[in-house]
Design a protein around this nucleic acid. Sequence first.
RNA 1: GGCCCCAUCGUCUAGUGGUUAGGACAUCAGGUUUUCAUCCUGGAAACGGGGGUUCGACUCCCCCUGGGGUCGCCA
Length: 485
Amino acid sequence: MQKIRTRFAPSPTGYLHIGGLRTALYSYLLAKKHQGVFVLRIEDTDTNRYVSDAEQAMMRALKRAGLQYDEGPDVGGPYKPYIQTQRLALYQKYALELIHTGGAYYCFCSKERLETLRQQAEGDHLPFHYDGHCKQLSEKETKEKLQQKLPYVIRQKIPAEGTTNFKDAVYGTITVHNRELDEGVLIKSDGIPTYNFANVIDDHTMEITHVLRGCEFLSSTPKFILLYKAFGWQPPVFAHLPVIIKDGGKKLSKREKDAAFEELLDQGFLPEAIINYVALLGWNPKTEQEIFTLKELEEQFDLKGLNKAAAIFDKNKLLWVNSQHIQRLSLDEFHTHLAPYYEKIFQKTKLNVKKISELLHTRTKVFTEVPEQITFFEALPAYDTELFVNKKMKTDTLLALTALTRVFEAFEELTDWQEDTLRSTALKLIASMQLKNGQVLWPLRAALSGRQFTPGGAIEIAVILGKQESLARIAKAVEKLQKIR
RNA sequence: GGCCCCAUCGUCUAGUGGUUAGGACAUCAGGUUUUCAUCCUGGAAACGGGGGUUCGACUCCCCCUGGGGUCGCCA
């Protein structure tokens, strides 16, 4: 069997958004699954929309996502160059060939004439099609106009009769009447090809076997097929992907920050989690597995599992997938991810941050939510004595005062500030007071943290804070509680 | 508007003529736990509508409705 070659062919107009990421991912997975080759090609034929550094941003994003391409602008390959504006001579050559074989023709119509045609069509409530005006030109007339150096474009010639169809790997057979197809521009007046043309030439010359792209191309694919036919080439397998929309059914635009892959990274999501989530948005593994590594996706991906309907990007589920990936991280790996946050937060104190990581591990959905969870370690936040009142724990300010006073006395005597010791000391005290664990430990945790909810319990927090700081915080709580008596 | 495409819980989806319509997220209730989180148990929650075909339709066909795409010298 022929070796599978897929490509991701973005136009460098901005950043890698979720839809693009998914297209790239599926292309990558399809190639990897079959030991094929994944190519990155930059489609920069729109000189008006040139955005500097967008290519670099695209390549960086792909790499951060883990989708390393085998051939591309910066890594080279046997079909280079991989940037369309560097392949202009090639398109020129094929366009000429197409004119000679009757698959295309010169068109000298002015933009004004086309605009008039367009307005007319609109007035008649008809779809605009080029009227074929220049198709009637004789060879001699054409030659004359070329010699006069009149500006021209090259248009695709489309059969007036019949239908064109192709089998899409996800949508099945698509058929359209040729009369519905516009004889679109192949080469623009500046000599640069349009997407329609460059895409076909490149996919063929780069021997791409499978084209995965957004379904906005579904209805124009017959034109591509016609182009392949005109050249006598075998078209690749096409697989069009449904769109990803945001909640509320609106289109996910590149402008939207949360639609950009790297923005998600900045928001504290793991690249492998984003990949995992996006993979499931429109593809079903046919098993009940939900959490995948890239490697597992490479093994299990199949075009057959692709879905036709548009999918809504659900950040909630992404959050969950992310938390799952975080929990699968080893403690060391997890700790490494948190290091920069610790550095920022713990300016004054030197704490056992490894222990904090332990507490955080099952409590983190995204890294960016970590700071708010642990700032109380650095400095005791202001709090009200109401914090000591908890119905479920059966505590109130009076009980808290006695409990904390006793805890202070017991802890003060300890020479060994270890978790086991603290726990047994606390439990012994609780037993002697004939109270429930929560009646002492809730006030203790509140005193130590000044917060209603914390990662970890009273004992764990005390261990991390150390003896001096813990006692100071308990003393402060006692003082506060005495004041309101 | 023409053409093309799509349609199962709020969301992602399984389902290919006979199922108590399954799973996951979210949600609700309960349990474990010194709070929170994790973890465990359970609940509520869907086949857009109308016609056919068939002994039998979520599944097949048609129409409607709703949604999306496209109609550029953009991709």
